[in-house]
Nucleic acid binder design. Sequence first.
DNA 1: ATGAAAGCGCTAACAG
DNA 2: CTGTTAGCGCTTTCAT
Lengths: 347, 347
Amino acid sequence: MVTKKITIKDIARIAGVTPTTVSMALNNRPRISDKTRQKILKISNELNYRPDLLARSLISKKSYTIGLVINNISDPFFPELAQGIEEKARELGYNVILCNINRSMRSQGERIEMLRSKGVDGIICTTALVDDPHIRKLVDDNFPFVLINRRHYDPDLAGKINYVVLDNFSGGYTVIKHLYRLGHDRVAVLAGNFQTSTVIERNKGALQAMKDCGIKQSPRLTIKCDYSFEQAYNATKKLMKMKSPPTAIFSHDDNMALAAREAILEMGLKIPEDIALVGFDDIRTTSLTGIELTTISQKKYEMGELGVKILVENLEKEVPPMVNQLVLKAQMVIRKSCGYHMTGYVR
Amino acid sequence: MVTKKITIKDIARIAGVTPTTVSMALNNRPRISDKTRQKILKISNELNYRPDLLARSLISKKSYTIGLVINNISDPFFPELAQGIEEKARELGYNVILCNINRSMRSQGERIEMLRSKGVDGIICTTALVDDPHIRKLVDDNFPFVLINRRHYDPDLAGKINYVVLDNFSGGYTVIKHLYRLGHDRVAVLAGNFQTSTVIERNKGALQAMKDCGIKQSPRLTIKCDYSFEQAYNATKKLMKMKSPPTAIFSHDDNMALAAREAILEMGLKIPEDIALVGFDDIRTTSLTGIELTTISQKKYEMGELGVKILVENLEKEVPPMVNQLVLKAQMVIRKSCGYHMTGYVR
DNA sequence: ATGAAAGCGCTAACAG
DNA sequence: CTGTTAGCGCTTTCAT
C-alpha cells in the first residue's frame, strides 16, 4: 500500500482553516496573512504534502506536459533531438511523454489521440508524412503542435503549421555539387522514405545539382532504402556489382551510410579510393577515426530546443502567435570519406 | 482556440440519457441495453468524443503513465533501453514520461517528486546511487519503482527493491581474465562513477580477477573518468605517456573506450598491437569495421522490457507481488581490439 | 483576510 | 436497464 495521500483538506483541518485558504497560501496568492501562510507552509512540509497536478489540470486545462512523437529513439538522429526537447521543456516547466511509433503510421494516429486524451498541452511530431491526415486533423482542431525535421505539403495548411527543419534541398544540392567537383558524375543515392518532405527535398536538391552539373541520373542509381541499415547494406552490395558501378554514394542519413560502408569494406573496396561516401545528419559515430564520414551537419539538440520554444510560445501567448517556420542552414562537414583530403577539387 | 471539448455530458444530452449511462456504455459495462449503447457509440463517434483521461485518473488513482529517469538519452546506452521501455509500456497500456537528469543528482529528487505529483503509477530509475536517499524515500513511501542497471546497497532495503542488472562483477572479472590470458598483466581501468553499484561491481570483478591471476594493480592505473568522453580521452593520453604504460585498457563503458581509441590512434599507436582495448555495453558503433571493440554485451532493449514488466506486475497484482531482482548473465563479445584474433590465448 | 459553494470530467454506489 | 447523488483534489467566484 502506498502511504495515504495528503490533500489540502488534511492540511486545512490541521491548520484550522478551509481548503480554499490552503490553496491560496500554497499558491502564493495575496490576501492571505503571513501568519496563516507560514503555518500552512509548515504543516504542508511536515506532512510532505505533494500537490495533485492531475486535479489541478482538470480545472486549469493545462497539464504542463507535451507529447513527443518519434519513429524510434534508437535511431541515432533522435537521442540528441530528444535531449534538446526534454531539457528545454523542463526549463520551461514542462514534462515530455515519449512515443516511439516505429514506422507504423497507423499507430501514429492512435498515439496522438492518446496524448490528447492524456491532456498534453501540445505535441512535437517528427514523423509526419507530406500528406499526413493526422497532422491535418491537428490543424483542423486547432491543437498546438510543431513539426521537427518534417513539413506538410497540403497547400491549404501551408501557412498554418509550425516547423523546424534543415534546408534539406540545399543539403542534397551541396553534397552532389561537392562530389561533382571531386570528379564524381555517377552518384548513387540511398534514399529514405519518399513520403516525407525530408527525403523529397534532399532528393530534389540532389537532382537539381546533377542537372546543374550536366549529369543525367539513371533512375537505377536512386534506391529507396527507407532508412534501414539492412536495406542500405544490400543496396550497396548490389550497386557495387553493377557493370559500371557508381563512383560515389550519397546516403540520406548517416546510419545508411555506415551500412554502405560495411558493404563496401566487406567487398574489399576502399573508401574513398574506390568509392566516395557521403552521409547526412552528422551523428556522433561519423567523426571517429577510421570512419570520418563526410556529411551534412544537423544541430539536433538545438532543433529540439527550438521546437519546444516555438510550441511553448504558442501555448502561453494570449494572442495566437505567429506561425513559426524555421529553416536552418545546411552545412557540410568534410571528412575523409568523400576523398577531398586526397585530391581537393579537380575543377 | 482549440475546438470546444466534447464531454459525456454533451453526449448524454443528445442521446437523452444521463452521463452515467454514457460512461457505462462507453466503458463496455453490462446492464446497458444494446440499443442505447449503439446510439451512444454513434453519437460519440460523430462528435469525435475523446475521453478526458485526467478526469478518469483523478477518480481511479491510476494514470497508466510511468516515469523514466535516466542520466542522458544521448548516452548511447540509453536509447535502446528507452525503446524497450517505451514499447513494452505501450504494449501493456502505459505511457512514459522521460526525464533526463544529466548527472545532477539534486535534480533527480525534484524530478521524482514532479513525476509523483503528475500521478505516475510507478517509476523506472537508471540513475540511482548506492546510498541514494531518493530511492530510500520511494521505499519508505511504498511507491512502486524498479531500478535498471543499478542497485542500492542499504542493507535495510536489500530485499525490498526491484531491479534488473547485468552481472557486472562477472563482466569485470571476465574482461580482466580474458586480457590476462592474452598476456596482459598491466591493465588500466577507465572507471565510471564510484557511487554507483554498476561501477563498484565491475571494478570489484576486475580486482578479483587480477588477484586470482596474481596481478597486483597499481592504484594509478584505475582512473575515475565518470563516463565522460573527454575525461577518458585525457586519461588515456596520460596513461600512454607513463614510463611503463599499461598494455591494455579496460573501460567501464564503450563510450569511454571510443575516447581511449581516439587518444591512442592520435598518438600513432595501434590497437591491439600497442595496446589492447576492451569496453562495456556493446553499443552499436563498437561492431563497425575498423572499430571492432571487444566488449561485454548488454541486452539493453530486453532490460528495458523486463523493467517495465516487473513494474507493471507490481502495479496490477492485487497482492503485493514478490520483489524481483534480476541479474542477467554477462557475456563477452570478442572482437579485434583485444588482440585475440592475432594471438589467441597464450596459455 | 478567510469561508462557502460550485464545478472541472468522470465514475461508482445505490436506488428505482 | 437507467437515473440520482456524491465525490476524486483542487481552484475559483462570490460572500462575509
